[in-house]
């Protein structure tokens, strides 16, 4: 019994020393890299390569038909110094995102939290998610009837009838009302991704935590939200906030469905509408890529900020 270890103990470190550092590294982490391999391979080919190509295109003149021609920083100079429409687009997008982003985020959480304990929650979830299921174009059709500029538009018709206005108001043609209408419709649509993710997140909070909380003196639902629910779904909140930023700054579909492209006096023009205009209407891909890079830098900066705010130091 006592002799055995004496035989084996000196042999072991020798064997380990012989194995290369690489083999030891592989033994420890290899399986995890295998788990990630399918995603990373596909990601490199179908996402990273196109994104890098697009970033390269921002330094070129590229009209899709001819090969891209390197022109250095001139797209960037043009964009900031001479493109007035882009500045309008930035202003509109900022207005849109600063309002609909946070409001949509809080609404999504509050609605998810309110319907979570109810029996009818699948049905209610369907109702709130419905605007996200139907395409922006379909919804554009519905809302265009509501905000139609003649006296037959639902809103004008109603306002005329109650005597609030004397003549039909051009909701989607007046500079002052285009952006508010777009924001209103966007908020109505905002129970999308974030809402469903919060609802799913709430399911993963163990119910015994609430019981434990009651024992520890949590007395009202508000305390329960702040001390149990919110900390437990912090990762989902980070996801929801990043998506709110991305969606807020890339607003396009609903804006053009309602106001058209280009919209009257560019009142509904957004950064991605500008990008789309150059990419698929004027076929100036290089310039469109420049817009994409600027938009990317901006949202990525905000994303890092959000990750710092929501970084969960109290993980399990």
């Amino acid at each position: 019994m006592a002799t055995r270890p004496e035989v084996f103990v000196p042999a072991r470190p020798a064997v380990q020393a012989q194995r290369s550092a690489l083999a030891r590294f592989w033994a420890k982490w290899g399986i995890y890299y295998l788990f990630m391999a399918p995603f990373l391979a596909l990601f490199a080919v179908f996402v990273v390569a196109p994104v890098l190509t697009a970033a390269y295109l921002s330094f070129t003149y590229f009209n899709v038909l001819e090969a891209p021609r390197w022109i250095g920083w001139s797209n960037y100079k043009l964009l900031f110094l001479e493109d007035d429409v882009f500045l309008i687009a930035i202003a509109n997008t900022l207005r849109f995102a600063t309002l609909t982003g946070p409001v949509g985020f809080f609404m999504s959480f509050i609605f998810a939290w309110l319907i979570n304990p109810l029996k009818m929650k699948t049905l209610l979830a369907l109702c709130f998610y419905a605007p996200s299921i139907t395409a922006a174009v379909t919804m554009g059709v519905v809302w265009k009837i509501v905000f139609s500029g003649d006296r037959y538009g639902y809103l004008n018709n109603w306002l005329l009838r109650i005597g609030a206005i004397d003549e039909p108001y051009q909701w989607l043609a007046e500079q002052a009302s285009i952006m508010p209408v777009i924001m209103f419709v966007a908020l109505w649509m905002s129970m999308g991704t974030g809402f469903l993710v919060f609802l799913a997140g709430l399911q993963t909070v163990p119910s015994d935590l609430y019981e434990a909380g009651k024992v520890d003196g949590i007395s009202n639902p508000l305390q329960e939200v702040f001390y149990i629910t919110l900390p437990m779904i912090k990762p989902q909140l980070l996801f929801g906030s990043v998506m709110a930023v991305v969606q807020g700054f890339s607003v396009f579909g609903i804006a053009t469905a309602l106001a058209g492209l280009p919209s009257p006096l560019y009142a509904g023009h957004t950064i991605v509408a500008h990008l789309y205009d150059f990419a698929f209407i004027r076929f100036e891909m290089g310039y469109a890529a420049t817009v994409a890079v600027i938009l990317f830098i901006w949202t990525f900066g905000l994303g890092r900020l959000l990750m710092r705010i929501f970084s969960s130091k109290n993980e399990y």
């Binding site: 196109p50 190509t53 697009a54 698929f280 938009l295 990317f296 990525f300």
Partner: peptide, 24 residues
């Protein structure tokens, strides 16, 4: 690094990567 790249990918406007993706 990998996670950072994935977040970054989320934020790049898909409209401009469509043509490079077609080329791939």
């Amino acid at each position: 690094f990998i996670f950072g790249m994935i977040i970054a990918a989320l934020m790049f406007a898909p409209e401009v990567t469509a043509i490079p993706r077609y080329l791939v």
